[in-house]
Design a protein around this nucleic acid. Sequence first.
DNA 1: CACGCATACTCATGAAAGTGACTAGTCACT
DNA 2: AGTGACTAGTCACTTTCATGAGTATGCGTG
Lengths: 189, 189
Amino acid sequence: MALRHAVLAALLDEELSGYQVTKAFAAGVANFWHALPQQVYAELARLEKEGLVAGREVVQVARPNKRLFRVTGEGLAELESFASAAAKPSFLREDLLVQVQAADHLDTDVLIDRLTERYAFAEAKAALFEEQLRAMRGERGEAEFLLHGARVGPYLTCRRGRDFERANRDWCRDAVEVLRARREARADS
Amino acid sequence: MALRHAVLAALLDEELSGYQVTKAFAAGVANFWHALPQQVYAELARLEKEGLVAGREVVQVARPNKRLFRVTGEGLAELESFASAAAKPSFLREDLLVQVQAADHLDTDVLIDRLTERYAFAEAKAALFEEQLRAMRGERGEAEFLLHGARVGPYLTCRRGRDFERANRDWCRDAVEVLRARREARADS
DNA sequence: CACGCATACTCATGAAAGTGACTAGTCACT
DNA sequence: AGTGACTAGTCACTTTCATGAGTATGCGTG
């Protein structure tokens, strides 16, 4: 039941349409959570029914009308109580880790392919996060922004996302190196 | 459908009982995947029915009998085909990230409590992984082990787990620092 | 000698998350 | 005039995950 809180958190700083929220949670852009459009719309409907968000219809001319949502007082209270409860730590859960766990029994070439793909993905995503961070802090230096910037929450989560992908990238690089070195060592013997 | 492959990967290096597999996947010990006992047992049953693992009854004297499982040739083939398909990258999905995303609208003290808890947890888990790594490489230095050790797959995934928790720890520390500094800056003004 | 804890599992149920398909209009490009 | 991409969503379905409880035995500690 954390998606509801993730949606609430996303709506805190600005009024967004369901569509915009789905964009924010779409693969590749979400820095602190990920969800599919269907989940987001369903959650928004539930949140509205429970009075945690309020939606208002916005009529548009050259495109479908949309509904903008904002968090209500009750919604904020819900977030407060969510934050006051202990957060359950999550675990790494990646297909690639499973594949590498079995590395000693699988074809090295195939694994190196997977790791190289993931490396590129991680690199791209880290760069994307880095750009978002630059945009958030604007002209200011990071230290200055962290002290006096308006909203640091999104900045901090984005930084975590960036560092996560950097760590993924470095791990992929090292793993490839290890697998290659072992293959050569085997070939020599 | 990755749990099945995670279970297969766990059974590759040694014959294990369902109970032992559940222990390996239990919270806090799993380095590359996490699952509850019920899921593991259910998955093992399915895998056996499909012939990907083979179980054998082991009669014990002072404790309940157990069934040891090993991966069959078909199981290994399944893993191969799993590895040959592109792995879908995962996302960070942590309650704490959601809470920090909303940091600017929530009580700072509460958040610092959460971050401090997570810091301690991450530190403990990183230490645990570090110990496992030491045990795996034994007397050898890391470079030596990575080149000539028998099984590097589990070592590499464990290292990813350790680095992940270290990153969590560092992020928590930095976030607390930022929140404290901002509170003081607010108090001064 | 009662209590909790470890081994070794099973069953039932519900909540959450993920997948695929589908509507419907606008815009730009070919 | 057709294609695909973007906006803005909805419906139906399945898989996965999580929870709590229950069974049975033995072992050590206070």
